[in-house]
Amino acid sequence: MARATIKIEPLHPDSTVCLHAVSPSGKPRDPASGCTGRRNYAVVCSACGPVGQPHGLRVLAEPTQRAHRDSHKAAPAPAPDPR
């Protein structure tokens, strides 16, 4: 079974992923970059896709990330093939 990674991705106001350097306020460091700033943070699982609704602050997305990671740990392992 492949290992799932659960990340918190910063989002622009139009819900696209923001990879730009930003200041602590969430505004772009380089005004010429075309970045509109960060608005939300989404929890994204490599196995399940987006998890829940985006959160306004990164710290609010962390419990969702932790809970989803724990749900993968709690999932029963597939039974070995008896052949």
Rank of each mutant, 00 (worst) to 15 (best):
M1K: 07
R3I: 10
T5I: 09
T5K: 11
T5E: 12
I8E: 02
E9K: 11
T16R: 09
T16E: 03
V17S: 03
C18L: 01
H20Q: 11
V22L: 13
P28F: 00
P28H: 02
R29L: 15
D30G: 05
P31G: 14
S33E: 01
G34W: 04
C35S: 06
G37V: 13
G37E: 12
R39I: 03
R39V: 07
N40D: 14
N40I: 01
Y41R: 09
Y41K: 03
A42H: 08
A42E: 11
V43L: 00
C45M: 05
C45W: 01
S46L: 10
S46R: 09
A47I: 08
A47F: 08
G49Y: 04
G49S: 06
G49K: 03
G52K: 08
Q53C: 11
Q53N: 14
Q53D: 15
Q53V: 12
H55G: 02
G56V: 10
V59F: 12
V59D: 14
L60S: 13
A61L: 03
E62L: 12
P63Y: 06
P63G: 06
T64A: 14
T64Q: 13
T64S: 13
Q65E: 15
Q65C: 13
R66P: 01
R66V: 09
A67I: 01
H68W: 04
H68L: 03
H68T: 05
D70C: 09
S71Y: 03
H72N: 07
H72K: 03
K73Y: 12
A75P: 06
A75N: 12
A79N: 04
A79W: 04
D81T: 13
D81W: 08
P82E: 08
P82Y: 05
R83C: 08
